[in-house]
Write a protein that binds this DNA or RNA. Structure first.
Lengths: 204, 204
DNA sequence: CCGCTGAAGAATTTATTGATCATTCAATCG
DNA sequence: CGATTGAATGATCAATAAATTCTTCAGCGG
């Protein structure tokens, strides 16, 4: 069984090298296969489809992000600062990755289109770390009490969506994105400190 | 000269009817022209290009929005509520317009791609109304003092970007969008009440 | 048997060609 | 002489055919 996962890794590795360089669309299953000295058909014993290879790529990228999120969330810095660090780290890592290998953006686009549930999964995972920070902030008295941490985390994610795949939503430079992200975080953190009053939706 | 602007309006009107129904790409200059009983070439005496027709369409749509923004901004409702109304109104109007005439989304896409400066112009205009509300909020004591209203308005716009052309950024239903918008606004308004402390960017 | 191949089929992509389109401008009209 | 046309032009688009590509699976080989 370790043999099987070794091969899987090899395929994923070969695929990543090609996709990062040539893009998802321009990388074929037989190219990946021949890089691994096997037939294209054989790949399907390890991945159900080409899309699943892209998903595995993203999963690996996310795993590294989550590792850092976890460390940031556990640190003893002030909660507000941890919140900042999580989102700045995400922005920097994603921006740099796409800057270095522009074709990664294509993977994000394809997955956003074809695997929306996978994207949601990532957001849900991120929220776990955000909740840790939020709850800790409440415990320390930095933030006012929060009724539903997961809901609040969701709203924070919504407000910061623009900075998730920055090159997908704007053409701003990294410094400008960082400036904006910081400004929006200023508002959010002030709001958390004050305490959020849920307002019923206005009619019109 | 009134003759000239009458013709311009006629062209714009014909173009809007066709574009709303068939989309920007599927509407040709000669179709618009023949709707107005003139040659395609003649349109160019009134519009510099096809893109300028799309821009004029959007300008008209925006003008109606701004009219409402202005009324909302001037009203004597609590500033927080006025802020909510502006963004909910924008969301509802834009969502409905695209729901009714799906092809309007294409116009937004084309303009976003080809006329980014026009989009910025619209944001700048919107900020004027936001600043009115913010300043009034500060004067009334509902919001803490704000150093740079335009900057704060810019950050609020950034946080609410997702709700500007909702169908462009997600596939959420209107109720879900409204729920999210309201939640993000809750945070922003709490932040404004508390007072925003500008934090220097974190290093990494 | 298990793991793998390579041929086969369905779907997609590319290449190529012809048609259409946006735009310009010299010629015409009123 | 200003307003308008319609032909000319280069760019973009549509259509089709050819080639690739993803995916499956019957069968081979260890």
């Amino acid at each position: 069984m370790s043999d099987k996962s070794k091969t899987r890794e090899q395929i994923l590795d070969a695929a990543m090298n090609r996709i990062k360089h040539y893009g998802y669309g321009k990388t074929t299953m037989s190219e990946i296969a021949s890089d691994c000295d096997m037939s294209a058909g054989n790949i399907y014993r390890f991945f159900a489809s080409k899309l699943d290879i892209a998903e595995a790529m993203a999963r690996q990228f996310n795993a590294e992000l989550y590792q850092s999120y976890s460390e940031i969330a556990r640190s003893d810095a002030p909660p507000a600062q941890r919140l900042r660090k999580v989102f700045h780290y995400s922005l920097d890592q994603t921006f740099d990755a796409i800057e270095r290998e522009a074709k990664i953006l294509e993977v994000a686009e394809v997955l956003g289109e074809e695997r929306p549930l996978f994207m949601n999964e990532g957001l849900a995972q991120e929220r776990i770390y955000l909740c840790t920070i939020l709850e800790d902030g409440v415990a320390r008295g930095d933030f006012a009490p929060i009724k539903d941490c997961n809901y609040t985390a969701e709203m924070i994610q919504s407000a910061l969506m623009k900075y998730r795949f920055p090159q997908l939503f704007s053409r701003l430079t990294l410094p400008k994105l960082r400036r904006e992200l910081n400004g929006v975080l200023d508002i959010i953190i002030a709001g958390l400190a004050k305490g959020i009053e849920k307002t019923p939706e206005i009619e019109h």
